[in-house]
C-alpha cells in the first residue's frame, strides 16, 4: 500500500493515535503497538511530580514520533503559546492545532483556528489543524500553509462517526494536502468509511482508549483503515436500485 507523506515525512501507517483516555501507560503501549501507528499525539500540561513513568519514552519505545497538540485551548493566543512550549519541550515543530470554540460540543472555533494557523506557519511550524467539516475553512487552512487538514467526523469523543459524509467528500476532492479524519470515530467501520471517502488517514483516541479492550480495538482499527484504503483504490461497484444477477441466465436446465 502506498505510503502517506505529510510535509515530506513518510508514514507507512495511515492511523495516527491519540493518547488520551488510556487507564495506564502499559495498556496504552500495548494498544499503540497493536495499532501500528507511527505517530502519537500528546497534550502539554503542568508537571505533576506524582505522575508515573515517561509518556514520551514509552511512545518512542513503540516506534512512534510525537505530535504535540493544543488540546483544550480556546484562543489563538493560548494555542500558539502551547505550540511554542511543546516545540521547546519535545524538539519538534510539528503540532496538531486545536482551538476549541464551545465547551459542550468541543467544536473548533474557525476564526481563532485560522488565526493561530497563520501565526504558527509563519513561525516555522508544521501545522496539522483539527477543523470543522467545512470545505471552505479547509481550503483557507490549506491556503494558510497547513501541512494537512484534519476535519472532524463528529465531536471529539462522541463516537458518532461521520455525520456529514457529503462535506467530507467535498474536502477530499478539493484538498491538495493530506486529509486526516480526526475525531468522532466510534468503531472500526467508521474508520473504514473515512478511508473509503478518500481520506488519507485517520486520527483517533477515545475509540481505542475507552474501548473495553483497547489493544483488540487497536488491531481492529489498523485493519479497518487498511481495508478502507484498499477498497477506495479498488473501485467499488455502483449502487443499483434493484438486484443484478451475478450468475448467467443462459444454460439453465429445464427441470419440469
Amino acid at each position: 500500500m502506498a505510503a502517506l507523506t505529510i510535509a515530506g515525512r513518510v508514514f507507512h501507517s495511515r492511523l495516527i493515535i491519540g493518547t488520551g483516555g488510556f487507564r495506564n501507560l502499559e495498556l496504552m503501549a500495548r494498544a499503540v503497538e497493536a495499532s501500528g501507528a507511527e505517530m502519537a499525539t500528546v497534550a502539554m500540561r503542568r508537571v505533576d511530580p506524582t505522575a508515573p513513568g515517561s509518556l514520551v519514552e514509552v511512545l518512542e519505545g513503540c516506534g512512534c514520533s510525537i505530535l504535540p497538540n493544543t488540546a483544550n485551548c480556546f484562543t489563538a493566543r493560548d494555542a500558539v503559546r502551547t505550540a511554542r512550549l511543546a516545540r521547546e519541550a519535545l524538539e519538534t515543530d510539528w503540532v496538531k492545532l486545536e482551538v476549541i470554540g464551545d465547551d459542550k460540543t468541543l467544536l473548533p472555533d474557525a476564526a481563532e483556528l485560522l488565526d493561530a494557523a497563520q501565526t504558527l506557519v509563519a513561525d516555522g511550524f508544521t501545522v496539522l489543524p483539527y477543523t470543522n467539516d467545512d470545505p471552505v475553512l479547509a481550503r483557507r487552512l490549506e491556503e494558510a500553509g497547513c501541512a494537512a487538514v484534519m476535519p472532524l467526523g463528529s465531536p471529539i469523543g462522541s463516537g458518532m462517526g461521520i455525520l456529514n459524509p457529503y462535506n467530507l467528500r467535498l474536502i477530499v476532492e478539493a484538498a491538495r494536502v493530506p486529509v486526516i479524519l480526526d475525531a468522532g470515530i466510534g468503531t472500526a467501520s467508521d474508520a473504514t468509511l473515512a478511508m473509503e471517502a478518500g481520506c488519507d488517514g485517520v486520527l483517533l483516541a477515545s475509540a481505542i482508549s475507552r474501548a473495553e479492550d483497547p489493544p483488540a480495538m487497536a488491531s481492529a482499527m489498523r485493519l479497518a483503515v487498511d481495508a478502507g484504503r484498499l477498497a477506495r483504490a479498488a473501485g467499488r461497484i455502483p449502487r443499483r436500485r434493484y438486484g443484478e444477477a451475478s450468475s448467467p441466465i443462459e444454460g439453465m436446465a429445464e427441470l419440469t
Binding site: G18, T19, G20, G21, F22, L25, M28, T41, V42, A43, M44, R45, R46, V47, D48, A51, L55, V56, I66, P68, N69, A71, N72, L85, A86, A89, L90, K96, E98, A205
Partner: peptide, 10 residues
C-alpha cells in the same frame, strides 16, 4: 512561571 511536560491527551 509555568513548567509543562507532555501528558496523555488529545
Amino acid at each position: 512561571v509555568e513548567v509543562l511536560r507532555a501528558v496523555q491527551g488529545g
